[in-house]
Computed example of a mutant assay.
Amino acid sequence: MLIPVILSGGSGTRLWPLSRTLYPKQFLPLAGKSTMFQQTVARAMAVPGATAPVILCNEEHRFLVAEQLRQMGVTPAAIVLEPVGRNTAPAAAVAALHAA
């Protein structure tokens, strides 16, 4: 069993004015009809033996994540919310604890 974990953090400051704090670049359709987030979910779901993904995101992006997953017809195993961004290592640790 393989549990895909998608870390969907980011503050949306580097692609301004297109990307904003409440609508960062991973949720924008920059290269095609789907967003980078949706493309990542699709790649993870295509891996043989993969279960439903666990998504870690900023608390402010929970509705964007849920809506984009709904558009794809994907039900995640969990959407874990970060109250405060702490970079990759803590997010990976939380994902590992959740998977355990």
Rank of each mutant, 00 (worst) to 15 (best):
A96E: 01
L7Q: 05
A77G: 06
P53E: 02
T75L: 12
P90T: 14
L22S: 11
Q68T: 14
A66R: 11
A99V: 14
P17H: 13
I79E: 04
H61N: 11
V65I: 11
S8I: 01
M45N: 13
R14L: 15
L2V: 14
R14F: 14
N58E: 11
V41T: 05
L97V: 13
E60C: 01
L15H: 14
L18F: 04
Q39F: 00
A66K: 12
E59D: 05
L28S: 06
A78N: 05
S19T: 05
A78V: 05
E82V: 05
V80K: 09
G32E: 00
A77R: 11
V80E: 11
C57N: 06
P76G: 07
L30K: 01
A42W: 04
T13N: 08
V5F: 03
G49Q: 12
L97E: 10
F63D: 13
A78H: 01
A44V: 02
T88K: 08
M1K: 13
P17K: 10
L18A: 14
V80M: 11
M1Y: 12
A89H: 13
P76K: 06
N58K: 04
S8M: 01
I55K: 00
V41N: 02
R14T: 12
L64E: 05
P17G: 10
F63M: 05
A52Y: 02
A100I: 12
A91L: 12
G85R: 06
P76D: 01
G12D: 09
Q26N: 05
P17F: 10
V47C: 04
L15K: 08
L56E: 02
S8C: 11
P17I: 09
W16Q: 13
V94W: 07
A31E: 06
P83T: 08
T40E: 01
Y23V: 03
T75R: 15
H61L: 00
L64N: 12
A46M: 05
K25G: 09
L7C: 09
S19R: 00
N87G: 12
H98P: 01
P90N: 15
V74W: 00
A95V: 03
V74R: 03
A50T: 08
L7K: 04
W16P: 01
P29T: 09
T40V: 03
L64M: 02
E82Q: 14
M72W: 02
E59M: 09
A46E: 12
A100P: 08
A99R: 09
F27Y: 08
A95R: 00
A89T: 13
V84C: 08
R70M: 09
L7W: 05
L81Q: 09
V5P: 02
L7A: 06
G85T: 10
P29A: 10
H98S: 07
K33Q: 04
L18H: 13
V74A: 06
Q71M: 14
L97R: 12
S11P: 03
T51Y: 00
Q39K: 09
L2F: 13
P29R: 08
A93Y: 11
E67H: 05
V5K: 06
V54A: 01
A100E: 07
A50Q: 04
K25Q: 10
L7I: 15
T75I: 13
L97N: 08
T88I: 14
M72E: 10
V80S: 01
L28G: 01
P83K: 12
L64I: 07
W16M: 07
K33V: 00
Q38Y: 03
S11D: 04
V74H: 08
L15S: 11
T88L: 15
A50W: 07
L30I: 07
T21H: 10
